[in-house]
């Protein structure tokens, strides 16, 4: 359980406290990065990068209760930068990317492949909202703090995204 005391300690530069915060966050951070980037190595890089920035900037965190939103916001920017990089590379690296995705297919479950494919139909923002609520269990209030949107907007965007997902194989329900 992360208390405000721990967050405050981390803000004040206590490495131990920072470690506790990190312990609380890193799994969710990595998983979100993994689904967004769909690449193991890049997700790892992005998370480390984000953590270094968090460590650099934690003394500026004012709202102690919002540390999770704050961390995810940094991660999100890092992911966005990475995705832009993919976009720039798309023509040159198309072969490479194909190889990568083939490798991944071999090692992962059918369900995961389907989920990843399904997430690909969402916009980046929708992906962020879906992953933050599903993976990190963040409330719409927390997400709204993270991406500067009204929490009502977040809720409607989330349900729209989930509706979109229902067109995909793994999210089609029989009943």
């Amino acid at each position: 359980m992360i208390t405000e005391v721990i967050v405050k300690r981390a803000v004040d530069g206590d490495d131990e406290a920072f470690k506790i915060l990190y312990e609380d966050l890193y799994k969710d951070m990595y998983r979100i990065a993994y689904y967004k980037l769909q690449n193991v190595e890049d997700a790892e890089d992005v998370v480390s990068d984000a953590v270094f920035d968090m460590y650099r900037g934690i003394h500026k965190l004012k709202d102690l209760t919002a540390y999770r939103a704050w961390a995810m916001r940094i991660l999100n920017v890092k992911c966005s930068i990475k995705m832009k990089e993919y976009y720039i590379n798309r023509t040159e690296d198309i072969e490479e990317l194909d190889c990568q995705s083939l490798e991944n297919v071999e090692s992962e479950s059918v369900l995961r492949t389907d989920i990843k494919k399904a997430l690909d139909i969402l916009s980046d923002e929708e992906k962020t909202i879906v992953l933050c609520s599903a993976v990190a269990g963040m409330s719409s209030d927390e997400i709204s703090e993270m991406i500067n949107l009204n929490s009502n907007t977040i809720r409607s965007k989330l349900s729209r995204a989930l509706l979109k997902l229902r067109n995909c194989k793994c999210f089609k329900y029989d009943y």
Partner: peptide, 10 residues
Amino acid sequence: RSLNLIKEDA
């Protein structure tokens, strides 16, 4: 259910 599915896989 969708969110749970993603959560489980995650």
